[in-house]
Computed example of a mutant assay.
Amino acid sequence: MNIDSTRRLALAWCAALAVPAALAHGEAHKRHGTAPVVKEQKPWGIAGEARGARTIEIRMSDQMRFTPDRLTVREGETIRFVVRNNGRLLHEMVIGTPEELAAHAELMKKHPGMEHDEPYMAHVAAGQRGQLVWHFNRPGTFQFACLLPGHFEAGMVGTVVVTPASQEKKP
């Protein structure tokens, strides 16, 4: 076997090993068609219902920024995010903890073709809009980010501060 054949075989072997991991992760994020949203509790909340939710518009740009990039919501509040991609590139908005978003961004660099379809994610094509509805039932400081390769690293990150619900005064 010559050197070129050995290189091709090594590249094919590496690609074959990488594909199952990427597909497995992609399938974990993919809802099928009109399947109901699975409401799984996350440290930053749970999928919400649009009825009665407050609407906040988030704009994404090719300058790798969200506008606004800082939000404050109350614990127990449901937000309907209308996510507008004003750029020419594909962008996404993913809500999570700083640690979880950083880890997922690293995974996206290794597997850029991953598909996302979780209730805390909106993948939005250029010039389009998407939405996600999220119920913030835990106080804390969380983030939202675009995890497409290079976008997160360029600073396409925002902050959501969830303030604790006020304690009702007892007589």
Rank of each mutant, 00 (worst) to 15 (best):
M114D: 06
A53F: 05
A154D: 02
V83G: 06
Y120R: 15
S61E: 07
Y120S: 13
E118M: 09
C146M: 07
H104A: 14
V157F: 07
H111G: 01
S61G: 11
K42R: 13
W134Y: 07
R65A: 15
L147N: 14
M108C: 10
I46V: 13
L101R: 02
R138L: 05
L71V: 00
H123N: 11
V37H: 06
R129Q: 15
L148F: 14
E92V: 04
G48Y: 03
L90E: 13
I56M: 04
P98N: 07
C146H: 06
A47N: 01
F144W: 03
V37T: 15
V94E: 15
A102P: 02
A125Q: 13
R54H: 12
R74W: 08
F136L: 06
R59E: 12
H151I: 02
G127S: 05
I58L: 07
Q131W: 15
W44K: 04
K110A: 14
T72F: 09
T55Y: 05
R84N: 13
M60R: 07
G52H: 00
M108L: 12
Q41T: 05
N86P: 00
N137D: 11
G45L: 00
I46S: 00
T141W: 04
I46P: 00
A47L: 02
R70Q: 14
G158A: 02
M156E: 10
M108E: 12
N137G: 08
G96Q: 01
A154I: 09
A103Y: 02
G140N: 02
L89K: 09
A122P: 12
G140W: 01
G113P: 04
N86A: 14
G127P: 05
L71M: 04
V160Q: 08
R138W: 04
K39L: 10
A53D: 03
R129Y: 13
I79E: 02
A103V: 11
E40Y: 10
I95Q: 03
E153Y: 11
E118H: 09
A126Y: 09
F66T: 01
P139A: 08
I56D: 02
V83A: 09
R51F: 08
R54M: 05
F142P: 06
A103I: 10
E106D: 15
G45V: 01
R51T: 12
E106S: 14
H91W: 10
E99D: 13
R84P: 04
P149S: 12
R65G: 09
T97E: 03
V161M: 09
A47P: 00
G87I: 01
K42F: 04
Y120G: 03
A154C: 02
E100I: 03
L90N: 12
